[in-house]
Design a protein around this nucleic acid. Sequence first.
DNA 1: TGACTATATTTATTATGATAAATAGGAAAA
DNA 2: TTTTCCTATTTATCATAATAAATATAGTCA
Lengths: 275, 275
Amino acid sequence: MARKASTARSPANDAVRAPKRGDLVVEEIKRWIVTRQLKPGDRLPKEAELQDLFSVSKGTVREALKSLEVQGFISVSTGPSGGATVVEVPLERTFQLVQNYLFFKEVDVRDIYTVRKMLEPELAAGAVPHLTKRDFEAMEASIDTCAPTPASVDDALRMRQEDLHFHDILAEANPNPFLRFFCQMVNQTLRRLVVFGANPLQSHNTELGRTNVLAHRELLAAARKRDVEKVRRLMLAHIEEAETHVFRMHGTMSSRLVLDSEMRVNITPRLARKP
Amino acid sequence: MARKASTARSPANDAVRAPKRGDLVVEEIKRWIVTRQLKPGDRLPKEAELQDLFSVSKGTVREALKSLEVQGFISVSTGPSGGATVVEVPLERTFQLVQNYLFFKEVDVRDIYTVRKMLEPELAAGAVPHLTKRDFEAMEASIDTCAPTPASVDDALRMRQEDLHFHDILAEANPNPFLRFFCQMVNQTLRRLVVFGANPLQSHNTELGRTNVLAHRELLAAARKRDVEKVRRLMLAHIEEAETHVFRMHGTMSSRLVLDSEMRVNITPRLARKP
DNA sequence: TGACTATATTTATTATGATAAATAGGAAAA
DNA sequence: TTTTCCTATTTATCATAATAAATATAGTCA
C-alpha cells in the first residue's frame, strides 16, 4: 500500500508520458547552452562529471549526449581535450532530419517546382549584389562541368547534381538566412528525389542538361553586370523551362524521396563559402 | 603488436571519423524500414532480439533506438506489446530540429516576412478549392478569438498565436505537401520568435491585431465564395500590412529565436485536420 | 635543432548484470 | 457485469568493468 496513484494519468492513448531522465538531462543542457551563452567550440563537462551533476548513471548521460548529437548540437570525441563540444547545428544534419519527415509524404517533382518558382528568382536577385569574384569563378566552373555531352549514366547523374550546385552558390550569397535555408532545402530535396525506370541518357534529360547550361551562362553574365532585374527574369524563365523538361520525363518514370541510409552515391553538396 | 593502422586516418581536423556501432545499427534499421516497407504502426523486434541480430550490447542498441526516437522515426514504450513502433515523423519534431538550426542564425523578422510574402498568397490560393465546412468554421472561431481588445499581456500574446493558427488552417488545406511544410515552417518560426523589451499592449501591437481581424474576415469571405484570385490578392495585402506594423514595432525592441527548452508558454499548434 | 616515434594519459565506447518502473492482459472479487 | 488486483513482459535506470581511440609528452635519432 505505497504505490497507488496510477489510475488518473493513464498514458494509454496519447496523454502525457512521464519524460525519461535522459530527456530531462537534454533539456537541462540545452538551457545551459542558452543561459550560459555557450558558443560553438565551447566544451561540456566530461561524462563522469555530468553523471555527478545530474545524479544519473553513465548510460543515462550517454543517451542524453546521443540525443544532443543527433540534434546536431554537440560533437563528441575521445582523448584528452575530448568530450562533448558545442557546435553550430550543421546544415546537412538539418537536411537529413527534414528529409526524414518528407520521406513519409507523397512529394511530387511538380510540388517542389511550384515552390521553386516562387523562391528562386527572388533568391537570385537578392544574391546578385553580394556575389564575389570567387563565386563567379565557382559558377563558371560548375557550368563547364556540365557543358560536355554526358558519356555515361554516372556522368549524367553527376551533371544533374552539379546543376544544383550552381544554384547553391547563389543561395549562399543571399544575405537572408531564412530564404537561404529554404532554397537550399529545395535543392537538397531535388537531389534526394531519385528517379526510377528511365535511362538518364534519354533525350529529355540531355535536353534538360543542354538548356540548363545555356540558362546558367546567361544568368552568370547578367549577374556579372549586377543586373538584378534581368537575373530575376532569367531565373524564372530558367526554372519554368526546366520544369517542363522534368515534367515530360515524368511521364515515363516514377520518383520518390530516399533516406540518407539508402543513398547510393554520396552526394555531398559543396557548401563552403569563404569570402 | 597487433593494433597498428592508425597513422593514415587522423580525425584531427574534420576528416572521416570511424562510425560508431550504434550509428551503424541505426543505418541498418533504417534500411529495414525502407526495404521491408515498414509502415507507421509496425513494431521493431524488442531490444534483446536486436542485440542478438546485430551482435551488440544492450547499451548500444539503446543508443541506436534513442537516435531513431530523436529523429522521430520510432516511439518506444514499456510493458507487453511495448517496444519500438514505427511512426510517421511528426511535424512538431521536424519543427524543433529546424529551429535548432535557425537558433544559431541571425534571423530577422523581416527575413521571415520576405519569404512569407512569396509563399503565403500562393498557398492560400491553392487551398481555397479544398477548404471544407469544418475549415471555415475553424477560421471563423479563430477570428472571433482575436476580435476583442486584449485585456492583458497574456491575452495579447495568445491572440498573436491564434492569428498564426488561422494561417495554419489554410496551410493544411493545401494539397502540395512541400509548400504546406514550408508555410507551416514560416508560421512556426514566427511563433518561436520572441520579442523583448516592449509591451505587447502597445499601440502598434493592438493595431496589428485589429487589422489582422479585418483582413482575416475578408479572406474568409472570399474563400467561402471560392474566389481564388481575390484570396491571393487579399493575402498579399494582408501580409504586407502586417509586415509594416511588425516593422514599426521592431524599432523599439529586439527579437530572437528561442529553443524548445526555453519556451515559457507551451504553444502547441493545433494541427489536426479531419476531413 | 628538428622531425619522427613510442609511451602514457585522458576520454569515450562497448559490454554485462542487476534492479526498478510501466503496461497489458487475465484472474479474482464485488 | 464491473471493478480491482495480480502477474508476466518489456523498457528504464543504475552500477561496474574492461576496451578502444585520440592526444600530449617525453624520448630518440638524424
